[in-house]
Structures are given as structure tokens and as C-alpha cells.
């Protein structure tokens, strides 16, 4: 059972500010995903949610639960670290697949960077 501890006001304020900031960046990322037209442009805004959005929410969680349990509760910092390892994998795959498809359909994208037509990494 978690005992209810009265949190100091500055801690509640910091938690609220961090949560709102993170949510705001995630919202802007979502707006970008809806409003931008070009596929490659749309790859960028979701990174707002997976970086600063996730950082702020994790930090808020660390602050709040550390205050609640009267000691450091740090495991939320693993979220940004694991996100920064896994998100690039899917992003890279999406970018590669989009480039490949657009080249096949003859759209305006740069030619393959390897000379001789070998497919790059």
C-alpha cells in the first residue's frame, strides 16, 4: 500500500508543468502529422512525441513518485533511453521503404547514392 504523503507545492507545480509541456509537444507532433503534405516531411513531427514529449513525462513521473515515496524512484529514465534505441529502427525502415517505393513509381526523389546501382544500406 502506498501511504498518502502531502506533496510540497513546488513539486506538484513542477510535475504539472512538465506533463503539460510534454503533452503540448506531443500535440504539435500530431498536428504536424495531420497537416503536412509530403511523406518525408511527415516523418519529422512524431519525433517530438518520442523525444521531448517522452522526456518531460518521464521526468514528471520520477519527480512525482520520488516525492510520494520519499526517496528516488528512477526507473522511468529507462523509457527515454529505450525509446532512443528502438525508435530509429522503425524510422529508418520507413524512410528506406518510402524511398524505394517512390523511386519505383518514378517520383521526384534523389537517385541511389551508391554508384553502379547497388542498393545501399
Amino acid at each position: 500500500m502506498i501511504q498518502t504523503v502531502e506533496l510540497p507545492f513546488w513539486l506538484e507545480l513542477a510535475t504539472a508543468v512538465l506533463l503539460l509541456t510534454g503533452s503540448l509537444f506531443a500535440l504539435v507532433g500530431a498536428i504536424g502529422l495531420v497537416r503536412l503534405k509530403d511523406y518525408f516531411q511527415r516523418m519529422h513531427p512524431p519525433a517530438l512525441a518520442s523525444t521531448i514529449g517522452a522526456w518531460c513525462v518521464s521526468l514528471a513521473s520520477i519527480l512525482y513518485f520520488s516525492g510520494l515515496k520519499q526517496g528516488p524512484v528512477l526507473h522511468a529514465w529507462l523509457i527515454p533511453i529505450l525509446l532512443s534505441i528502438t525508435v530509429p529502427v522503425t524510422t529508418l525502415l520507413l524512410a528506406r521503404a518510402a524511398l524505394f517505393r517512390k523511386r519505383m513509381s518514378g517520383e521526384q526523389v534523389p537517385d541511389e547514392v551508391s554508384s553502379g546501382g547497388d542498393r545501399g544500406n
Binding site: F40, H44, A47, S50, R119
Partner: peptide, 15 residues
């Protein structure tokens, strides 16, 4: 490059 918003790694030459 992929974690930093605003840049996406798209292709690397074989060499």
C-alpha cells in the same frame, strides 16, 4: 540523426 527531430537518415552508400 534519427533521434534529433528535423533530420532522418535515409540512405547510406554501399562503400
Amino acid at each position: 540523426t534519427t533521434v534529433v527531430p528535423g533530420t532522418v537518415w535515409s540512405e547510406l552508400a554501399v562503400d
